[in-house]
């Protein structure tokens, strides 16, 4: 179990709050749509903080403007990968941004073993640190 104050992985915008309900997720979808952002759903079983490229559950939904339809895609992903991390990302294509503007976790494994810190002692008192995810000791798809 992770020992931080929320006892869980705290990436994303809302990990310190109770899990979002479908109604709350829908409100966030509407906010992204109002800003003209495209929503993408991604999942992973490797939540290392530097693992940028989670698997895409299809391409970002550039042309889908219906919050209910987007929520359905999110829920499809959660059903397909009930024991993975699932995040919702909103992509902004306007000049000068062209980057994610929202990102929040909507699904997580039942148990989250977290990360260990591997220290490699170097010259002087220098230490090289490696953040190691316990789950990734097992092969892909068998981690949680």
């Amino acid at each position: 179990m992770m020992t931080n104050p929320s006892n869980r992985l705290t990436q994303g915008q809302f990990s310190f709050l109770p899990d979002l309900t479908d109604a709350q997720i829908t409100a966030q979808i509407k906010y992204a749509l109002k800003n003209g952002w495209a929503i993408g759903v991604e999942y992973t079983d490797d939540p290392h903080p530097r693992n940028v490229y989670w698997e895409m559950f299809g391409m970002p939904m550039f042309d889908l403007k219906d919050p209910a339809g987007i929520l359905m895609e999110i829920n499809n992903c959660r059903k397909t990968f009930p024991n993975h991390y699932v995040r919702v990302t909103a992509f902004d294509s306007t000049p000068g941004w062209e980057t994610p503007r929202m990102s929040y976790i909507v699904n997580r494994p039942k148990t989250e073993p977290g990360f260990g810190l591997v220290r490699q002692e170097g010259d002087g008192r220098r230490i090289h640190y490696t953040v190691h995810s316990y789950a990734t000791d097992k092969p892909e798809t068998e981690r949680y």
């Binding site: 931080n4 992985l9 705290t10 990436q11 290392h48 903080p49 530097r50 977290g114 990360f115 640190y129």
Partner: peptide, 18 residues
């Protein structure tokens, strides 16, 4: 610098965040 980086990396491992 040495003690701060120990703290940063410990906290990163504890939270899974950068």
């Amino acid at each position: 610098f040495l003690y701060c980086m120990e703290a940063v990396n410990r906290a990163s491992a504890a939270s899974g965040e950068v």
